[in-house]
């Protein structure tokens, strides 16, 4: 019998890139794919909607309480006769921008805190994790209400208020990933080839810690949108900028007489947050190696 042939490089190189595999996994998740399509549509509406549908959401364009579909207003008008369709389309932008910006801010704070704590350990970790726990036990809605109430209800301040109360989960996830990865051999190998601490943290360990952080960030966009809606509902919002939560808030007195005025923006929030959650869930399944073994 002859010897088996030496394995050629081509044969070994058929192993697939982890990202390609993750995409394959994500594509197999129907709910996540539908959600991704819906989310993309919402993004497109937020981006170009106001140009396509330029009606000012603050203009009183018709009689108040005109129900959806009547008099040419697809979603009807609110208690001041303002077009709800315009509010949904123009408000999408604010809701999504606040959602993304607040999520970005909490990822930024959370990753920095978690990375420093997980990498340096010792007193740095003690200190940072105690601070994290301090923020964790604060009643989040109340705390952000206080911030907005004290410093004014501008969009940047609302974003800040949401970001500052929701970074703790990211910090804890990042820390735990750092604790795990810092002990792996390739980190020691990089250290042995002369890498500085900053490089080890952000170039070697962080990219490997990203998958769960990405998932958490995706889910956080959804919760930030909810948070903004909650604050707006309570009236803590910039009165000159329309957002979905603000529409619900300003129409809340008429919830019994004209329920569609709060239902319509409510559905918009519901669909968006659900889509983000499903996409986040799909990402979680796709990026989590433990679920990948089929």
């Amino acid at each position: 019998m002859s010897m088996p042939p030496v394995i050629q490089t081509e044969e070994i190189a058929t192993a697939r890139h982890p990202m390609a595999e993750a995409w394959e996994m994500f594509r197999g998740n129907h709910a996540a794919m539908v959600a991704l399509v819906v989310l993309t549509l919402i993004m497109i509406i937020a981006a170009i909607g106001p140009y396509v549908y330029p009606t000012d959401p603050f203009d009183m364009v018709w009689a108040p309480f005109s129900p959806p579909g009547v008099d040419g207003f697809i979603l009807g008008t609110d208690y001041l006769g303002r077009d709800l369709m315009a509010a949904i389309i123009h408000g999408a932008r604010v809701s999504i921008v606040i959602g993304l910006a607040a999520a970005f801010m909490s990822v930024f704070i959370g990753v920095t805190v978690g990375a420093l704590a997980g990498f340096y350990r010792g007193w740095v970790e003690e200190l940072l994790m105690r601070v994290t726990e301090f923020f964790q036990v604060l009643p989040t809605l109340l705390f952000s209400m206080v911030i907005v109430a004290l410093f004014g209800a501008s969009l940047p301040m609302i974003t800040f208020a949401i970001g500052i109360v929701s970074w703790t989960a990211v910090a804890r996830i990042t820390r735990s990933e750092f604790l795990r990865i810092r002990e792996l051999e390739y980190v020691t190998a990089s250290r042995a080839s002369g890498a500085t601490n900053a490089k080890l943290m952000f170039q070697i360990i962080l990219p490997n810690a990203l998958p769960p952080i990405i998932v958490q960030a995706a889910l956080m966009v959804g919760s930030a949108i909810l948070f903004e809606a909650g604050l707006s509902f309570l009236g803590l919002t910039d009165p000159n900028v329309v957002s979905w939560g603000q529409v619900i808030g300003s129409n809340r007195q008429y919830i019994l007489d004209a329920s569609y005025t709060v239902t319509v923006p409510g559905i918009a929030i519901f669909v968006t947050v659900l889509a983000i959650s499903l996409v986040g869930d799909g990402l979680n399944d796709a990026l989590n190696p433990k679920l990948r073994q089929r």
Binding site: Y186, A189, S190, R191, G194, A195, T196, N208
Partner: peptide, 24 residues
């Protein structure tokens, strides 16, 4: 010491499967 590591003295490890960074 960091300047010496990897430049003047370098090291290879036991586990080739785990001593390379998977993301690069």
């Amino acid at each position: 010491l960091r300047a010496i590591r990897g430049n003047d003295i370098s090291m290879i490890f036991q586990e080739p499967m785990t001593s390379l960074n998977p993301v690069y």
